[in-house]
Amino acid sequence: MLRLNVGMKSSEGDGDAGTLGIGALAARFGLATHVLRHWEAMGLLHPARDAGGRRRYGADDLTRVATILVLKEAGLGLNTIRVLSATADRATRHEILHPTAEELRSRIAAAQASLELIEGGLNCEYEDVTQCPGYRRLIAERITERITERSDPRSPAGEPVAEAVAPA
């Protein structure tokens, strides 16, 4: 049973046994109350109402808010979270999450490449970082790449792809 009535107005704490008002729930997660109202308007939350019409949040609502926050931290938008919450179908879930997973993999690869460059600069023994072998390799790779005008059928939406070009 959830009880948080210490020093709170009755509209924020325990009005009904085991429930929280909107202020208490928002405070618990460090959110503004308007965020919870917005999530409710989007169909992400469905709080019960007391006799006075005030929102009452139970244990399931706490789980729901925590789930929304975790999914937002993972990079999902509220519309995607709403669609995911409306389906129990594994194939639909995969269809929704696959593009997000691919985007994250791409961002992770870019961050890894950036980290490699930075660490190369930190570990370089030369006074002039442009003389470091790792730096020179990365620059040579960049010089030999070019964006082609042709579209690779494997790329999404027919986007141009980078292609290595042998030096002339």
Rank of each mutant, 00 (worst) to 15 (best):
E125L: 11
Y126C: 12
L97E: 03
I118R: 04
G121S: 09
E116H: 10
G121P: 01
T100H: 13
G120V: 03
E119K: 06
A109E: 15
A101V: 14
G121L: 15
T100I: 06
L122P: 04
R107W: 02
H94I: 12
L115S: 09
Q112T: 13
A113K: 14
Y126P: 00
A111N: 11
T130Y: 13
D128G: 03
D128Q: 02
Q112C: 07
N123T: 07
L115Y: 08
V129T: 08
T100D: 05
H94N: 13
I118V: 13
E119Q: 15
H94T: 11
D128S: 05
A101C: 05
L117G: 05
A110S: 15
L122G: 01
G121V: 02
A111M: 12
A113H: 04
R107Q: 10
A101I: 09
E102W: 00
E103T: 11
D128I: 03
T100V: 05
E125M: 05
E125S: 15
A101G: 04
N123Q: 12
S106E: 14
L104D: 08
E95I: 06
E116R: 15
Y126V: 04
A109F: 03
N123W: 10
N123D: 14
V129L: 15
A111D: 08
G121H: 07
P99S: 06
E127C: 08
L104S: 05
H94F: 05
S106Y: 14
A111C: 01
I118Y: 00
P99G: 05
A109D: 15
A109Y: 12
H98G: 03
T130P: 03
H98A: 13
D128H: 01
T100Q: 07
